[in-house]
Design a protein around this nucleic acid. Sequence first.
DNA 1: CAGTGGTCTAGACCACCGC
DNA 2: CGGTGGTCTAGACCACTGG
Lengths: 242, 242
Amino acid sequence: MHEQPSPTHQPLYQQVYRMLLDRLASGDWSPGELLPSETALAQLYGVSQGTIRKALDTMAAERLVVRHQGRGTEVAKHDSERSLFQFWHLYDEDGSRRIPSSKVLECVRTTARAGEARQLNLRRGAPVVRIRRCRYIDGRARIIERITLPAERFPGIESHGKALPNTLYALYQKQYRVTIQTAIEKLRAVKADQNDAESLGIEPTTPLLEIERVALDLEDEPVELRVSRCETNQIHYKNILD
Amino acid sequence: MHEQPSPTHQPLYQQVYRMLLDRLASGDWSPGELLPSETALAQLYGVSQGTIRKALDTMAAERLVVRHQGRGTEVAKHDSERSLFQFWHLYDEDGSRRIPSSKVLECVRTTARAGEARQLNLRRGAPVVRIRRCRYIDGRARIIERITLPAERFPGIESHGKALPNTLYALYQKQYRVTIQTAIEKLRAVKADQNDAESLGIEPTTPLLEIERVALDLEDEPVELRVSRCETNQIHYKNILD
DNA sequence: CAGTGGTCTAGACCACCGC
DNA sequence: CGGTGGTCTAGACCACTGG
C-alpha cells in the first residue's frame, strides 16, 4: 500500500500513528482495554504488520499504550504506579519515593485569574475550580499545593469537596475522560510566605522549592495548573538527563 | 544467523548494540567520525541489515550517534549545541535559553572530601581537581558553581587555571576522551550563604535553587560532580515529563 | 552517479498468555 | 492449543548526500 509522492507526504507509519491517536483521544477504546491485534489493524488500514508495529512501538514509547507479549496491546491507564513513575520526581534522601497522602484544605468553584487563564488557555474570568491541599510524607507536612482546573472540562468536580482522592489523574481519566499525557514543570526557589509557614510548620522565609506544572491531555491541550511548594530538607527533586 | 535458545539468551540486536557501545567506549571510532555503513556492519557481524538498523536506532535515541540520510551514521560529538539541548535546563522568563559565560574563580588540585568521594566512586582522600566559577546571563551573575573532577581521569586539567573554556564537556571529550552521556540531578531550595551572596550580589538568606549533578560517561562511571546555585528571579529550571 | 540511510513489505520462527 | 506480540531475515523502492 504505497502512496504517490506528494508535497505533504508523510510516512505511512506516522499516518497510522495519527489515526490511532485520534481514535484514542475520541474514546473509541477505553483505558485498560485491548486494541485489535497487529494483524487485524494491518488489514483494517491496508498496510503491512511491520508498519502497524512501528506506529504502536512509537505509542508504547510515549506510554500511550502498553504492550504485552501473548496478550495484546493495552490502552494505558492512570493508576498510582504510573503517577509515580511518570509524574513524581520527589525522592527521600534514601532514594525511595512514594505518593504522599493529602489533606484537602479548600475546593471551590471560582473564576480564572489572568495568569491562570493564560496558562490554561482560557479567557480571563472563565470558570475554574481551585483546590488547595497539603501533602504528607512520613506523616509530616512537606508540600503545599494549589491546583487550578478549567471547570468546563471537569463539570461538578468541586462537589467532591474535601473528599477528593489522593491520585487526581486517575480521577480525571475515569470520571471525566481526560488523560494526562505530558506535563511541563518550571522550578524556582522562593521564600515561604506566612500561609506556607503555617501549613508546613516552618519559619517564614524558609527557602522552598516551587514547582509550577501545566499538565496536557492527549491533544496537548492544557487541562491542569498545579503550583507545589516543597520543603526540601528531607526530600529533593530528582531529574535524569539522558 | 539465529542462535540456539539458552538461559542467558539476549536478542541479537541487543548483542550488537553492546558490541558497538564497547567499541565506542574504547575509542575505536572518534566523535564526529562516520561508522561503517549498515550493510558493512551487517556483513561484519553476520546479521541482517534490519538487525543492525535496530541497534543503531537505539543508539541514535540515546544520542550516542547521529544518523544522516545519504551520508552515514556519525559518532555523537559534544559541542555547545548538544550541551544546550541535553544538559541545560535553565530558561529565561521569555522561554529562551543560552549557555551563559563563565569566570573561573578557582581551579586547584586537592583531595576528595567524604561526600565527593562517595558520589564520584573514589576512595576518600583520592586526588581531585576542584573548580569554582561564576556564570553570567545577560551580563549579570546568576549562578555559582563548584565542580569536582577525579584527577586521574583528567591529568593536568588544573594547568588550564582560570583560562578553562566555558563548555567543559567538549573539553573533556576532545582532550581527555571522556564523553558525558548521562547526568543525574538533585534539586533543592537553599539559603544563600555569605559567599554566594557576595558572588551573586544579593542579600544573604535569599533563596537559591541548588542543582547537584553527577555526570556519567559511556560506561556509566561518574566522572564529574557539579553543584550549582542559581538565583531564580529571572530564570527557572524547566523540565518536561512525558 | 554510486552509496547512504528511510520506508515498506512478506514471511519465518520464537516466547508467552489464556483457555 | 490458538492467538498474541517479539525477533530476524531478505528484498524492493525512495530520498538524500557527495563527488
